[in-house]
């Protein structure tokens, strides 16, 4: 009997079994409003997303570059909050077949209430969560409730992570681990370290699915890094495409899918 929930890990196991790579696009919820988010989620599904990463706007997104900062500002200006996003997803969950991973800074969750957040996330069919400012050292209550409510909790590994830290992070992560490709913020250019290949291969050798993100902005880069990972996450480039060139967004996203 399979356990209820944990849709992210199930999806990745299935993709791995089929010898494919996961395509994980990111958009900011509420950019520019939640009605548009509903449309964009459908577009992402139609263009072949395996998992969708949905951002929660926060006033002080310190891991994000200008593209996602501005998307967060647009979302906040339309009154989008964690509460409204969870409510929106409760209504929307039957209209989409792709697992959704919520990417949110910690403070909105902390203020919402940690257990209440995971309970409501379960009601909204959320498959997983990523907290860019949660380190494994501080994660105990978050891991506890994620497990209780059947939600995968995805931690980030950076190029600077030492082997000891990598092991700790792998142990804590469920679903997949998020490999941050560069030392930097989202939307920066993809300048891989000389030791990139060795480092990511070490991470992969520990057995959990590894998806890579940060700085992947076009089909060439997506294709290149997909060789090293089980999945590729594209954020800023997609946020930008939807914002600046909405007519061409579908084509761009489909081409990313094909490159991976």
């Amino acid at each position: 009997m399979t356990k209820k929930g944990f849709t992210v890990r199930k999806k990745l196991e299935q993709i791995k079994k089929n010898g494919r790579k996961a395509f994980i696009p990111y958009i900011m919820a509420g950019d520019p409003n939640l009605e548009e988010t509903a449309k964009r989620l459908k577009i992402l599904e139609q263009s072949g997303a395996d998992i969708i990463e949905l951002g929660v706007p926060f006033t002080d997104p310190l891991a994000d570059g200008p593209t996602i900062q501005r998307a967060a500002e647009r979302a906040l200006n339309s009154g989008t909050t964690l509460r409204k996003i969870l409510k929106f997803l409760v209504d929307f969950k039957d209209k989409i077949n792709v697992p959704i991973v919520l990417m949110t800074y910690l403070n909105p969750v902390f203020c919402y209430g940690i257990e209440r957040f995971f309970r409501d996330a379960q009601k909204a069919n959320i498959g997983g969560v990523i907290f860019p400012d949660l380190t494994v050292e501080e994660a105990q209550p978050y891991r506890y409730f994620a497990k209780k409510y059947g939600i995968d909790i995805i931690f980030l590994i950076a190029p600077t992570s030492t082997p000891e830290r990598v092991k700790k992070i792998i142990r804590a992560s469920t679903g997949f681990v998020y490999y941050v490709s560069i030392t930097g913020i989202t939307g920066a250019s993809l300048k891989l370290d000389k030791t990139f290949e060795k480092h990511i291969n070490f991470v992969k050798s520990l057995g959990k699915p590894v998806c890579l993100g940060f700085g992947v902005s076009n089909t060439e880069e997506a294709g290149y890094v997909s060789k090293y990972a089980d999945g590729v996450i594209v954020g800023s480039a997609i946020v930008k495409a939807f914002h600046e060139n909405p007519d061409k967004a579908y084509g761009f996203i489909t081409s990313l899918r094909e490159a991976i």
Binding site: L62, A63, L106, P132, D133, L134, T135, E137, E138, F155, L156, I157, A158, P159, T160, S161, T162, R165, I169, V180, T183, G184
Partner: peptide, 12 residues
């Protein structure tokens, strides 16, 4: 207190 930062900064 505590440490709530992106992983990239943790080794630093």
């Amino acid at each position: 207190g505590g440490r709530f930062v992106p992983e990239t900064l943790m080794p630093a």
